Computed example of a mutant assay.
Amino acid sequence: MLLTKKKPVSAGTLLVEEFLEPLGLTQTELVELSGLPRRQVNELCRDCRAITADTALILAKVFGNAPDFWLNTQLRADLWAVMNTPQQG
């Protein structure tokens, strides 16, 4: 995995800007399609919650892509954050 100085797009931003908005879906419609709790969908969209393996499976089923797509997006953002956060101590 190649990491750059530029912050990668977050999984929540990707969910909203590349899936929900182009498809004309609301968070409420995603809740209905996925069976995920409303709070979880909202927190994902606001980048207040990370994509987990079970959520990746659900999103992949809803959007017709692979769970790895969602997990890799989350992993890239997590690694970038760790590598670009000043070390304490």
Rank of each mutant, 00 (worst) to 15 (best):
L36W: 11
E43K: 12
E18F: 10
E17N: 14
P8I: 04
F19A: 04
D68M: 12
E32L: 14
A56N: 08
L75A: 14
V41M: 05
L59R: 06
V41D: 04
V62P: 08
T55G: 01
L33Q: 14
T13N: 13
R38G: 05
E18R: 06
T28L: 10
L3G: 10
S34P: 03
I58L: 03
A77P: 09
E18L: 11
Q40P: 02
A50I: 01
S34K: 04
T28D: 14
T26N: 10
L36E: 07
G35T: 10
L15W: 00
E17S: 02
G12T: 02
T13L: 09
L15D: 00
P37T: 05
Q74A: 06
P22M: 05
L59P: 07
L3C: 10
L33C: 09
K61F: 08
F19G: 02
V31A: 04
G35K: 08
L20S: 04
L75K: 09
C45K: 03
N65P: 05
L75S: 12
G35F: 11
R38V: 09
V62Q: 01
D68F: 07
E32S: 13
E29F: 10
T55H: 00
L71W: 00
T73D: 00
L30C: 07
E29K: 15
L79Y: 06
P37Q: 12
P22L: 11
L3H: 13
N65I: 14
K7H: 09
L71S: 06
A66T: 15
L57H: 09
V31E: 12
R46H: 13
V62M: 00
Q74T: 07
P67Y: 00
L3D: 08
A50S: 15
K5T: 13
E43F: 10
G12R: 00
A53T: 06
R39T: 06
V41K: 02
A53F: 11
L3A: 09
A56D: 08
V16Y: 01
V31Q: 10
C48H: 15
L14F: 07
Q74C: 12
R46D: 14
L44Y: 05
G24K: 11
C45A: 14
D68Q: 13
A11T: 00
R46M: 12
L44K: 12
K61P: 03
V62T: 08
T26W: 07
L71M: 14
P22C: 11
R39F: 02
D47R: 08
E29Y: 09
K6W: 09
L30Q: 01
Q40H: 11
G12K: 00
R49D: 05
V16Q: 07
T26P: 09
N72G: 01
K7Q: 15
S10V: 08
R46W: 09
K61W: 07
T26F: 07
A56V: 04
L20D: 02
D78H: 02
T26K: 09
K5A: 15
A11C: 04
S10T: 15
T28P: 00
P37N: 14
L15N: 03
L44A: 12
K5G: 13
L25Q: 05
A11G: 05
P67G: 03
L33V: 10
